[in-house]
Write a protein that binds this DNA or RNA. Structure first.
Lengths: 151, 151
DNA sequence: GTTGACTCCGTACTCGGGTACGGGGTCTAG
DNA sequence: CTAGACCCCGTACCCGAGTACGGAGTCAAC
Protein backbone atom coordinates (compact mmCIF):
# COMPACT_ATOMS: atom_id res chain seq x y z
CA UNK A 1 0.00 0.00 0.00
CA UNK A 2 2.98 2.33 -0.45
CA UNK A 3 4.45 4.28 -3.32
CA UNK A 4 1.19 4.65 -5.15
CA UNK A 5 0.83 7.12 -7.95
CA UNK A 6 -2.09 9.47 -7.67
CA UNK A 7 -4.06 7.30 -10.05
CA UNK A 8 -3.45 4.14 -8.05
CA UNK A 9 -4.30 5.92 -4.81
CA UNK A 10 -7.51 7.27 -6.25
CA UNK A 11 -8.50 3.88 -7.61
CA UNK A 12 -7.79 2.09 -4.36
CA UNK A 13 -9.94 4.57 -2.49
CA UNK A 14 -12.69 4.50 -5.10
CA UNK A 15 -12.48 8.15 -6.13
CA UNK A 16 -11.33 9.98 -9.22
CA UNK A 17 -7.88 11.42 -9.72
CA UNK A 18 -9.35 14.89 -9.99
CA UNK A 19 -11.02 14.41 -6.66
CA UNK A 20 -7.72 13.66 -4.96
CA UNK A 21 -6.19 16.71 -6.55
CA UNK A 22 -9.18 18.75 -5.43
CA UNK A 23 -8.73 17.58 -1.83
CA UNK A 24 -5.09 18.58 -2.03
CA UNK A 25 -6.03 22.03 -3.22
CA UNK A 26 -8.37 22.30 -0.26
CA UNK A 27 -5.65 21.18 2.10
CA UNK A 28 -7.40 17.98 3.16
CA UNK A 29 -4.49 15.92 1.94
CA UNK A 30 -0.97 17.28 2.26
CA UNK A 31 0.18 18.26 -1.20
CA UNK A 32 3.92 18.10 -0.54
CA UNK A 33 5.09 14.53 0.15
CA UNK A 34 7.59 12.26 -1.49
CA UNK A 35 8.45 12.34 -5.13
CA UNK A 36 9.71 9.44 -7.11
CA UNK A 37 11.22 10.84 -10.24
CA UNK A 38 8.87 13.49 -11.52
CA UNK A 39 5.74 12.07 -9.94
CA UNK A 40 4.47 12.26 -6.40
CA UNK A 41 3.97 9.03 -4.50
CA UNK A 42 1.38 8.34 -1.84
CA UNK A 43 1.21 5.83 1.00
CA UNK A 44 -0.87 4.64 3.91
CA UNK A 45 -1.22 8.05 5.41
CA UNK A 46 -2.86 9.54 2.36
CA UNK A 47 -4.98 6.48 1.83
CA UNK A 48 -6.25 6.70 5.41
CA UNK A 49 -7.08 10.36 4.99
CA UNK A 50 -9.03 9.65 1.87
CA UNK A 51 -11.07 7.02 3.69
CA UNK A 52 -11.59 9.35 6.62
CA UNK A 53 -12.87 12.08 4.33
CA UNK A 54 -15.27 9.81 2.53
CA UNK A 55 -16.63 8.23 5.66
CA UNK A 56 -17.18 11.65 7.20
CA UNK A 57 -18.99 12.73 4.06
CA UNK A 58 -21.39 9.83 4.24
CA UNK A 59 -22.14 10.97 7.79
CA UNK A 60 -23.15 14.34 6.41
CA UNK A 61 -20.08 16.45 7.09
CA UNK A 62 -19.05 19.05 4.56
CA UNK A 63 -15.45 19.26 3.42
CA UNK A 64 -14.93 22.32 5.61
CA UNK A 65 -16.14 20.33 8.57
CA UNK A 66 -13.96 17.44 7.54
CA UNK A 67 -10.94 19.75 7.71
CA UNK A 68 -11.79 20.55 11.28
CA UNK A 69 -12.32 16.92 12.14
CA UNK A 70 -9.00 16.03 10.61
CA UNK A 71 -7.32 18.63 12.79
CA UNK A 72 -8.58 16.94 15.96
CA UNK A 73 -6.42 14.68 18.04
CA UNK A 74 -7.73 11.21 18.86
CA UNK A 75 -6.32 11.40 22.36
CA UNK A 76 -7.07 14.89 23.52
CA UNK A 77 -10.06 16.17 21.53
CA UNK A 78 -12.81 13.74 22.47
CA UNK A 79 -15.08 16.46 23.77
CA UNK A 80 -14.77 18.41 20.60
CA UNK A 81 -15.39 15.41 18.39
CA UNK A 82 -18.50 14.58 20.35
CA UNK A 83 -19.73 18.14 20.08
CA UNK A 84 -19.24 18.01 16.34
CA UNK A 85 -21.19 14.80 16.08
CA UNK A 86 -24.02 16.10 18.23
CA UNK A 87 -24.26 19.28 16.22
CA UNK A 88 -24.42 17.25 13.05
CA UNK A 89 -27.14 15.07 14.50
CA UNK A 90 -29.17 18.17 15.27
CA UNK A 91 -28.59 19.42 11.75
CA UNK A 92 -29.63 16.13 10.20
CA UNK A 93 -32.71 15.97 12.37
CA UNK A 94 -33.84 19.40 11.37
CA UNK A 95 -33.49 18.46 7.73
CA UNK A 96 -35.51 15.33 8.40
CA UNK A 97 -38.25 17.36 10.00
CA UNK A 98 -38.38 19.69 7.02
CA UNK A 99 -38.71 16.77 4.65
CA UNK A 100 -41.38 15.20 6.81
CA UNK A 101 -43.40 18.36 6.60
CA UNK A 102 -43.14 18.25 2.84
CA UNK A 103 -44.16 14.64 2.77
CA UNK A 104 -47.16 15.35 4.97
CA UNK A 105 -48.32 18.19 2.79
CA UNK A 106 -47.88 16.20 -0.40
CA UNK A 107 -49.60 13.21 1.10
CA UNK A 108 -52.51 15.36 2.10
CA UNK A 109 -52.88 16.67 -1.40
CA UNK A 110 -52.72 13.24 -2.98
CA UNK A 111 -55.25 11.79 -0.56
CA UNK A 112 -57.54 14.70 -1.13
CA UNK A 113 -57.18 14.32 -4.87
CA UNK A 114 -58.06 10.62 -4.67
CA UNK A 115 -61.28 11.39 -2.83
CA UNK A 116 -62.52 14.05 -5.15
CA UNK A 117 -64.85 13.16 -7.95
CA UNK A 118 -64.16 13.81 -11.58
CA UNK A 119 -65.90 17.04 -12.57
CA UNK A 120 -64.05 19.15 -10.01
CA UNK A 121 -60.75 20.82 -10.79
CA UNK A 122 -57.63 19.02 -9.62
CA UNK A 123 -57.21 19.73 -5.91
CA UNK A 124 -53.44 19.56 -6.15
CA UNK A 125 -53.08 22.21 -8.80
CA UNK A 126 -55.87 24.13 -7.17
CA UNK A 127 -54.11 24.12 -3.82
CA UNK A 128 -50.89 25.30 -5.41
CA UNK A 129 -52.67 28.07 -7.24
CA UNK A 130 -54.69 29.23 -4.24
CA UNK A 131 -52.06 28.87 -1.58
CA UNK A 132 -52.86 30.10 1.92
CA UNK A 133 -49.68 32.08 2.69
CA UNK A 134 -46.16 31.50 1.53
CA UNK A 135 -44.63 31.49 5.02
CA UNK A 136 -41.56 33.63 5.71
CA UNK A 137 -38.54 31.48 4.89
CA UNK A 138 -39.15 28.97 2.14
CA UNK A 139 -35.83 28.24 0.45
CA UNK A 140 -32.47 26.86 1.39
CA UNK A 141 -30.60 27.44 4.62
CA UNK A 142 -32.74 30.20 6.12
CA UNK A 143 -31.09 33.02 4.31
CA UNK A 144 -32.51 36.47 4.76
CA UNK A 145 -34.58 37.67 1.87
CA UNK A 146 -34.95 41.38 1.33
CA UNK A 147 -38.13 42.33 -0.46
CA UNK A 148 -36.72 45.67 -1.43
CA UNK A 149 -33.35 46.87 -0.33
CA UNK A 150 -33.02 47.45 3.40
CA UNK A 151 -29.59 48.95 4.16
CA UNK B 1 -53.89 44.04 -7.01
CA UNK B 2 -53.45 45.27 -10.58
CA UNK B 3 -50.95 47.44 -12.38
CA UNK B 4 -48.12 46.65 -10.05
CA UNK B 5 -44.59 47.48 -11.00
CA UNK B 6 -42.11 44.66 -10.71
CA UNK B 7 -40.97 45.97 -7.36
CA UNK B 8 -44.48 46.11 -5.96
CA UNK B 9 -45.24 42.65 -7.30
CA UNK B 10 -42.09 41.24 -5.74
CA UNK B 11 -42.79 42.86 -2.42
CA UNK B 12 -46.37 41.69 -2.30
CA UNK B 13 -45.23 38.13 -2.94
CA UNK B 14 -42.35 38.36 -0.50
CA UNK B 15 -39.55 37.85 -3.01
CA UNK B 16 -36.84 40.04 -4.45
CA UNK B 17 -37.10 41.92 -7.71
CA UNK B 18 -34.19 39.93 -9.07
CA UNK B 19 -36.04 36.75 -8.28
CA UNK B 20 -39.03 37.81 -10.36
CA UNK B 21 -36.74 38.68 -13.22
CA UNK B 22 -35.01 35.36 -12.82
CA UNK B 23 -38.34 33.51 -13.04
CA UNK B 24 -39.14 35.44 -16.18
CA UNK B 25 -35.84 34.44 -17.72
CA UNK B 26 -36.68 30.83 -16.91
CA UNK B 27 -40.08 31.21 -18.47
CA UNK B 28 -42.02 30.63 -15.25
CA UNK B 29 -43.67 33.99 -15.56
CA UNK B 30 -44.54 35.38 -18.98
CA UNK B 31 -42.09 38.15 -19.76
CA UNK B 32 -44.24 39.96 -22.32
CA UNK B 33 -47.33 41.48 -20.73
CA UNK B 34 -48.68 44.97 -20.50
CA UNK B 35 -46.55 48.05 -20.43
CA UNK B 36 -47.52 51.28 -18.84
CA UNK B 37 -45.23 53.87 -20.24
CA UNK B 38 -41.79 52.40 -20.27
CA UNK B 39 -42.35 49.94 -17.45
CA UNK B 40 -44.07 46.60 -17.41
CA UNK B 41 -47.09 46.19 -15.16
CA UNK B 42 -48.21 43.04 -13.44
CA UNK B 43 -51.54 41.86 -12.13
CA UNK B 44 -53.37 39.02 -10.47
CA UNK B 45 -52.17 36.47 -12.95
CA UNK B 46 -48.51 37.08 -12.26
CA UNK B 47 -49.10 37.34 -8.55
CA UNK B 48 -50.85 33.97 -8.58
CA UNK B 49 -48.02 32.40 -10.51
CA UNK B 50 -45.51 33.69 -8.04
CA UNK B 51 -47.47 32.17 -5.18
CA UNK B 52 -47.82 28.91 -7.07
CA UNK B 53 -44.10 28.75 -7.63
CA UNK B 54 -43.24 29.44 -4.05
CA UNK B 55 -45.74 27.01 -2.66
CA UNK B 56 -44.50 24.29 -4.99
CA UNK B 57 -40.96 25.02 -3.88
CA UNK B 58 -41.83 24.53 -0.25
CA UNK B 59 -43.25 21.14 -1.25
CA UNK B 60 -39.86 20.22 -2.65
CA UNK B 61 -40.34 20.81 -6.36
CA UNK B 62 -37.47 22.26 -8.35
CA UNK B 63 -38.07 25.14 -10.72
CA UNK B 64 -37.90 22.75 -13.67
CA UNK B 65 -40.63 20.69 -12.08
CA UNK B 66 -42.59 23.82 -11.32
CA UNK B 67 -42.55 24.63 -15.03
CA UNK B 68 -44.14 21.30 -15.76
CA UNK B 69 -46.71 21.75 -13.03
CA UNK B 70 -47.59 25.16 -14.37
CA UNK B 71 -48.19 23.64 -17.77
CA UNK B 72 -50.85 21.31 -16.40
CA UNK B 73 -54.51 22.01 -16.72
CA UNK B 74 -56.63 21.94 -13.57
CA UNK B 75 -59.49 20.26 -15.40
CA UNK B 76 -57.84 17.65 -17.57
CA UNK B 77 -54.48 16.80 -15.99
CA UNK B 78 -55.45 15.40 -12.62
CA UNK B 79 -53.73 12.09 -13.27
CA UNK B 80 -50.52 13.79 -14.18
CA UNK B 81 -50.59 16.09 -11.20
CA UNK B 82 -51.15 13.14 -8.91
CA UNK B 83 -48.29 11.25 -10.52
CA UNK B 84 -46.01 14.23 -9.98
CA UNK B 85 -46.97 14.43 -6.34
CA UNK B 86 -46.48 10.72 -5.78
CA UNK B 87 -43.08 10.80 -7.43
CA UNK B 88 -42.09 13.71 -5.23
CA UNK B 89 -43.24 11.85 -2.15
CA UNK B 90 -41.05 8.93 -3.11
CA UNK B 91 -38.15 11.29 -3.65
CA UNK B 92 -38.65 12.99 -0.32
CA UNK B 93 -38.94 9.66 1.43
CA UNK B 94 -35.72 8.40 0.01
CA UNK B 95 -33.96 11.52 1.17
CA UNK B 96 -35.46 11.01 4.61
CA UNK B 97 -34.17 7.45 4.72
CA UNK B 98 -30.68 8.62 3.79
CA UNK B 99 -30.71 11.19 6.55
CA UNK B 100 -32.00 8.64 9.01
CA UNK B 101 -29.10 6.38 8.21
CA UNK B 102 -26.74 9.24 8.88
CA UNK B 103 -28.44 10.01 12.13
CA UNK B 104 -28.26 6.39 13.21
CA UNK B 105 -24.57 6.14 12.46
CA UNK B 106 -23.79 9.41 14.22
CA UNK B 107 -25.90 8.44 17.19
CA UNK B 108 -24.07 5.16 17.44
CA UNK B 109 -20.73 6.92 17.49
CA UNK B 110 -21.80 9.41 20.12
CA UNK B 111 -23.29 6.72 22.36
CA UNK B 112 -20.19 4.65 21.99
CA UNK B 113 -18.02 7.66 22.78
CA UNK B 114 -20.00 8.36 25.93
CA UNK B 115 -19.48 4.82 27.19
CA UNK B 116 -15.77 4.71 26.65
CA UNK B 117 -13.41 5.64 29.46
CA UNK B 118 -10.84 8.36 29.26
CA UNK B 119 -7.52 6.79 28.39
CA UNK B 120 -8.73 5.29 25.12
CA UNK B 121 -8.57 7.20 21.84
CA UNK B 122 -11.76 8.94 20.74
CA UNK B 123 -14.06 6.33 19.19
CA UNK B 124 -15.55 8.83 16.80
CA UNK B 125 -12.30 9.92 15.24
CA UNK B 126 -11.07 6.37 15.45
CA UNK B 127 -14.09 5.08 13.56
CA UNK B 128 -13.63 7.69 10.90
CA UNK B 129 -9.97 6.87 10.53
CA UNK B 130 -10.46 3.10 10.48
CA UNK B 131 -13.57 2.94 8.39
CA UNK B 132 -14.87 -0.45 7.34
CA UNK B 133 -15.54 0.20 3.64
CA UNK B 134 -16.66 3.34 1.94
CA UNK B 135 -19.68 1.83 0.20
CA UNK B 136 -20.19 2.47 -3.52
CA UNK B 137 -22.18 5.71 -3.80
CA UNK B 138 -21.43 8.22 -1.06
CA UNK B 139 -22.13 11.68 -2.45
CA UNK B 140 -25.05 13.65 -3.75
CA UNK B 141 -27.69 12.35 -6.12
CA UNK B 142 -26.19 8.98 -6.99
CA UNK B 143 -23.97 10.23 -9.72
CA UNK B 144 -21.67 7.75 -11.37
CA UNK B 145 -18.07 7.98 -10.25
CA UNK B 146 -15.38 6.63 -12.55
CA UNK B 147 -12.23 5.55 -10.75
CA UNK B 148 -10.22 5.88 -13.90
CA UNK B 149 -11.76 6.81 -17.18
CA UNK B 150 -14.11 4.22 -18.61
CA UNK B 151 -15.17 5.31 -22.11
C1' DG C 1 13.12 4.73 -29.53
C1' DT C 2 8.64 4.96 -29.89
C1' DT C 3 4.04 4.21 -28.40
C1' DG C 4 0.59 4.66 -25.07
C1' DA C 5 -0.70 5.38 -20.48
C1' DC C 6 -0.06 8.16 -17.00
C1' DT C 7 1.16 12.70 -14.30
C1' DC C 8 1.45 17.76 -13.56
C1' DC C 9 -0.64 22.19 -13.63
C1' DG C 10 -3.81 25.75 -14.51
C1' DT C 11 -8.11 27.25 -15.85
C1' DA C 12 -12.84 26.87 -16.78
C1' DC C 13 -17.14 24.61 -16.56
C1' DT C 14 -21.22 22.00 -14.21
C1' DC C 15 -25.77 22.37 -11.41
C1' DG C 16 -29.63 25.20 -8.84
C1' DG C 17 -31.42 29.17 -7.27
C1' DG C 18 -30.73 32.99 -7.04
C1' DT C 19 -27.78 37.79 -5.82
C1' DA C 20 -24.98 41.77 -7.19
C1' DC C 21 -23.48 45.38 -10.10
C1' DG C 22 -23.41 49.02 -13.39
C1' DG C 23 -24.92 52.19 -16.92
C1' DG C 24 -28.68 54.32 -18.66
C1' DG C 25 -33.78 55.49 -18.89
C1' DT C 26 -38.05 57.01 -16.57
C1' DC C 27 -41.38 58.42 -13.38
C1' DT C 28 -43.12 61.26 -9.61
C1' DA C 29 -43.09 64.59 -5.81
C1' DG C 30 -41.64 68.77 -4.21
C1' DC D 1 -36.83 71.45 -12.95
C1' DT D 2 -34.45 68.60 -10.39
C1' DA D 3 -33.61 64.94 -6.93
C1' DG D 4 -34.33 60.49 -5.65
C1' DA D 5 -36.54 56.25 -6.26
C1' DC D 6 -37.47 53.03 -9.26
C1' DC D 7 -37.11 50.14 -13.79
C1' DC D 8 -34.57 47.77 -17.77
C1' DC D 9 -31.01 44.88 -19.48
C1' DG D 10 -26.90 42.37 -19.60
C1' DT D 11 -23.34 40.23 -17.41
C1' DA D 12 -20.91 38.34 -13.71
C1' DC D 13 -20.68 36.28 -9.28
C1' DC D 14 -22.00 33.21 -5.05
C1' DC D 15 -22.08 28.37 -2.74
C1' DG D 16 -20.24 23.12 -2.75
C1' DA D 17 -18.13 19.39 -4.58
C1' DG D 18 -16.32 18.18 -7.81
C1' DT D 19 -15.58 17.36 -13.41
C1' DA D 20 -13.52 18.54 -17.83
C1' DC D 21 -9.98 20.01 -20.78
C1' DG D 22 -5.63 20.93 -22.82
C1' DG D 23 -0.70 21.20 -23.34
C1' DA D 24 3.52 19.54 -21.78
C1' DG D 25 6.37 16.31 -19.42
C1' DT D 26 7.53 11.44 -18.01
C1' DC D 27 7.62 6.62 -17.30
C1' DA D 28 7.46 1.58 -18.53
C1' DA D 29 7.22 -1.79 -21.93
C1' DC D 30 8.02 -3.53 -26.28
Amino acid sequence: MNDLTIGALAKSAGVGVETVRYYQRRGLIPANGAQKGAFRVYGNHEFARLRFIRRAQTLGFSLDEVSELLALDEETDRERARAFARAKIADVESRIRQLEEMRGALQGLVTCCEHTEAPAPCPILHALANAPEPPPAPRGKTRARSATKAP
